[in-house]
Nucleic acid binder design. Structure first.
Lengths: 199, 199, 199, 199
DNA sequence: CTATAAACGAGACGGTACGTCCCGTCTTTAA
DNA sequence: TTAAAGACGGGACGTACCGTCTCGTTTATAG
């Protein structure tokens, strides 16, 4: 019960916070997550180790904050709605594929996904701050399509979105295939039509 | 270039090999992957550290071998084929869901999935030895369904299987939801029928 | 060369000064000198660290001030002079032995003696404020004895006092023996008579 | 009770042991005892920190071993015995004074004396290995003088030796005076004759 | 039925990073 | 304006493991 006195966030050094984020992102790209080190981040940032330990519980938490810092508003816009569901989905997924193929994006994202697998606490934060908002915009778009009748009424929209995004993520995470535009097109088409032959 | 003389596998101690596997699996369950150490495995197995370093390059490799030791023949049987594709898929996926909900299975599998995300070499082995065989049986079953006309001819079967298995894996890995029988049923139905309303 | 502006001693908080002394003496007894820290003193005294750094250069200096605060007038009285030199020396040395055997006295005194050995500056202050006054009263008493003829005229009184007090201090500091009343009696007798057999 | 398994001294690296001693003695002379650091010794010696922690409990213990390594046989010879006690004592004490005035000797010896004051365990080792053997040779010489009648029979020889050596040590440790040849001569003469005037 | 070479257990070694404590400085807040 | 509070850059602590490297000691063929 004897927690050590919580630090006072109002006295926190913004300069140090930024330097730590920059250092963490740079280093994870240069040396990889396994060789990423609190000590290394502190040294690169010109900061005492305690300044990191004071505000974060682990290198994963630092990286998550660094990665999500200022990215939160990306999801505010939502998906485009041109009335053509397939086209809208393909448009956004193609852009996402390009992003996932960007090397500077890969290292921290992979690291966080992996760290989350073994750390329940972290995975909750990772999901809540990155995956869930990214999923929600698809859910919203599909619901809109349901109201126009473009999508069947009884469908579990959440599961449908998973069927679109999880294969994408999995392929990338496990390196089981390339994330090409053709691939995402196939995903979207298959999701919309299903396997069953049409009469 | 002067590699150290390769050890002679024929003189290898089977007793030690098994003890190392047992220790690795037990420890990953008890302390988690991050706190799993080569020294800890060696001590628990009653084995010198060098005996581990002689045969494996990393703790992840040990764990992968330990986890897959004797499990390889599981995939030989293939999926059941009762003629009812949906029923067959649901039957197997439900069993898999039960397996993934088993605590002793979770720790090493999560660990390996996570380690693979940051280690390309390991991920190839992980995919090749665990994911790919597991996927293949689904691919085969779907191809059979294509020949009976139960599944449309033009479908990319590989992608279809991903749309079934990846949401399942992702949900479990990221802890975004429970793996229930209802969930897998929904997945199968959605995959087979697609989102589009039928006329 | 631009020394920081010297603090104004007239505005100094007497309450803080006392609290720091109390805390320093209490802590050195509880945790020992090596684990005595400025932060610990400040926390125990309910004082900001800077209030200590403003007025003292080191924890040794704090402790020396704390230890000598109000003890300076002890030496004003001088030694008793009953006309019997041996009796007077034994009387005072026995009392001193009792004092050195007091646990609350030991910790700070040992700490200061030790710190002085490695810090020339501190040792000068320690000697000047504690050792030298304590020695001087013995010197005065011996000089008086010289004038009465109780002590030979040519004797180097300073060295004689050292021969009385140093064995005493050394025994205590190095723990090479107990400081008993018998011991100090032996010292005094030996000093007065010398080793050489009398005819 | 659960002590960690004692290391096996037979497998100890002699090379490392020597390197650690050399580094410790060099560093204590260069930076002083307070700034002497286990980390610094390890770095200078080209040795892992654990190799120091494995064999010694503290920097003081390292220094004591380094200082006494190979010096133990110095005391084997004993004091000269020319039949003239005063001359013999002065001869040896003058040499000791010269040694104590040697700068390379000072730093480790001061450090050990100081550390011993606050660490009972260490002080026992310091006394047992350095002070006690140094004292014993004087005790033996005085006992021999007692047998020839040069020294009175009833004298407590141990205390007499303290009266000779402690003023010497104290002067040096506390820097209360120079250790000159004249000083040691005065000490010896005073000890032998005592303060009381002879008839 | 040895003898000999390997794999083995044990663990010391030079290192790196951990997470903590404290240093001495600097800044912010309330009296 | 001073002092409490405490965040900061920094350095060392003592610990845990890393991966390498001897040490004897099994052990298991090849002579």
């Amino acid at each position: 019960m004897a927690d050590k006195p919580a630090p006072d966030p109002s006295r926190r050094s913004e300069r140090s916070r930024r330097a730590i984020f920059d250092a963490a992102l740079a280093l994870v790209g240069e040396v990889g997550y396994d060789k990423l080190t609190i000590e290394g981040i502190a040294a690169r940032a010109g900061v005492g180790k305690q300044t990191i330990y004071r505000w974060w519980p682990s290198k994963a938490a630092v990286l998550l904050d660094a990665f999500t810092d200022g990215v939160d508003e990306d999801y505010a816009k939502g998906l485009p709605d041109t009335g053509d569901l397939a086209a809208d989905l393909k448009f956004v997924l193609r852009a996402t594929a390009d992003e996932f193929n960007d090397p500077v994006f890969q290292a921290p994202y992979r690291a966080l996904a992996a760290a989350g697998a073994n750390d329940e606490e972290l995975s909750r934060a990772f999901v809540g701050r990155l995956l869930e908002p990214g999923t929600r915009v698809y859910v919203d778009r599909l619901r809109a399509a349901q109201e126009t009748g473009e999508v069947a009424a009884g469908i579990d929209v959440r599961v449908a979105v998973e069927m679109l995004l999880s294969p994408f993520s999995q392929r990338w995470l496990m390196r089981t295939g390339e994330l090409t535009h053709e691939y995402v097109d196939t995903l979207v088409d298959l999701l919309l039509c299903g396997l069953r032959p049409r009469d």
